[in-house]
């Protein structure tokens, strides 16, 4: 018990000091089952390597992604969020990604309006064969957000 408390304290201390070497950002990725999830799997079967900071939530389609998921992710400690699905025209459900894109545009301007640093929010297309793109994406997002430091504004809103 004591040990756990100590660990938590250390963690919090790290988080309060942006740029501290030990601090690692947490990134939440909402991805579709058919393209990006499979692309991330391919990165694995190809034994590529990328930063371990991303946690994936799989959904059938980017069209299923509710903007609230993103807010919830920040609320629960995400320092950055990625939404990724099939390329336009390649949607498994013919047009779900178009819905996602449209929704995303509205949501993005709203978030910009409320003052969110847009470098914390990413939207991308990664197909089932684009393992390299996935790897590069996660690495660059992780590095960028590491520079930005922890994101505390929405934390604990719940």
């Amino acid at each position: 018990m004591e040990k756990a408390v100590k660990e938590t304290d250390e963690k919090l201390a790290e988080e309060k000091q942006p740029g501290a070497a030990a601090w690692e950002p947490k990134i939440m990725a909402f991805v579709c089952n058919w393209c990006t999830y499979a692309g991330a799997d391919l990165a694995g079967t190809s034994r590529m390597e990328y930063r371990p900071n991303v946690r994936i939530v799989k959904l059938p389609c980017t069209g299923r992604i509710d903007p609230l998921f993103i807010i919830k992710a920040f609320e629960n400690g995400a320092d950055g969020v990625l939404v990724s699905g099939c390329h336009p025209g390649d949607c498994h459900y013919t047009a779900g990604n178009y819905h996602a894109r449209r929704r995303w545009i509205g949501f993005k301007s709203l978030m910009e309006f409320v003052g969110l640093d847009m470098r914390r929010l990413h939207f991308s297309w990664v197909s089932a064969s684009e393992a390299i793109k996935w790897v590069d994406l996660i690495n660059s997002i992780t590095d960028d957000i590491k520079k930005l430091g922890p994101f505390m504004e929405y934390r604990g809103l719940k």
Binding site: C61, Y93, G96, H99
Partner: peptide
């Protein structure tokens, strides 16, 4: 087909997708 586009589209949160 279970894509869930309707779920995110529903303003009154009246639709949900089984399994997700």
């Amino acid at each position: 087909q279970g894509c869930g586009v309707c779920v995110a589209a529903c303003r009154s949160k009246a639709i949900d997708l089984a399994g997700y």
